[in-house]
Amino acid sequence: MTQTTTQTVSAPAEHIEYVMRLGDNALILGQRLSEWCGHAPVIEEDLALANMALDLVGQARLLLTHAGKLEGKGRDEDQLAFLRVERDYRNITMMEVPNEDFGRTTVRNVLYSAFQILLWQRLATSSDTELAAIAAKSLKEARYHFNHSAEWVIRLGDGTEVSHAKTQAALDYLWPYTAELFAANPTDEAVSAAGIGPAWGELEADWEAMLLPVFAQATLVVPARTPFKTFGKFGRHSEHMGHLLATMQYMQRTYPGAQW
């Protein structure tokens, strides 16, 4: 399977949406992490965060290119990344909340990279062979992201009084947003039934099993679930999304069609 394969018939809407959501998650988290470039607490972390951002933006390019082909309307990665309106983005809300500090950034990375590992493992055998190839590739990268973030969560959580307090505050803040990862929705059901990929809710138990030992070692308390819900998957985003898009889309909006 090569990237040059052209898709002439449009795929089912749920299939397109599922791939678009994956691409948008990678894109928006990649954009957030890239904000750290030149600002991280130490140079090693500056490099690490920029590298993780680069992996995610690379994954986003592959996924959005694929989504564009599935859609069959001639939209390429740049048009999808830079020329959609807020309501058309399908990333979960947790991806777009501000970095706040190194603690929140690191906790978000561990929460999402653990999920990615489980998801990419399942998608590596997807009936969508292009998606399977992207998954096999992204899985290798997600493992590094998870190891790195998990080490930092432990170091910060089980660190000084200040680092513990900040990391616990980050977990308290982000945890409610993770409910959206596993919330049932029609797209997931259709995609799961078609053998393209798992409904994300199927991954919740394994995800917790990966993370709870990390948080325990970090001496962090996992908050109880609350009724708080977010709907980024459906295109209903937080107040932060518009600001992020304004920054991210600026060049393409100002110089339409500009290329590197």
Binding site: M1, Q3, T4, A133, A136, K137
Partner: peptide, 10 residues
């Protein structure tokens, strides 16, 4: 030039 993703580079 053709890009091939599968199998992933190792």
């Amino acid at each position: 030039l053709q890009t091939r993703l599968d199998p992933a580079w190792t």
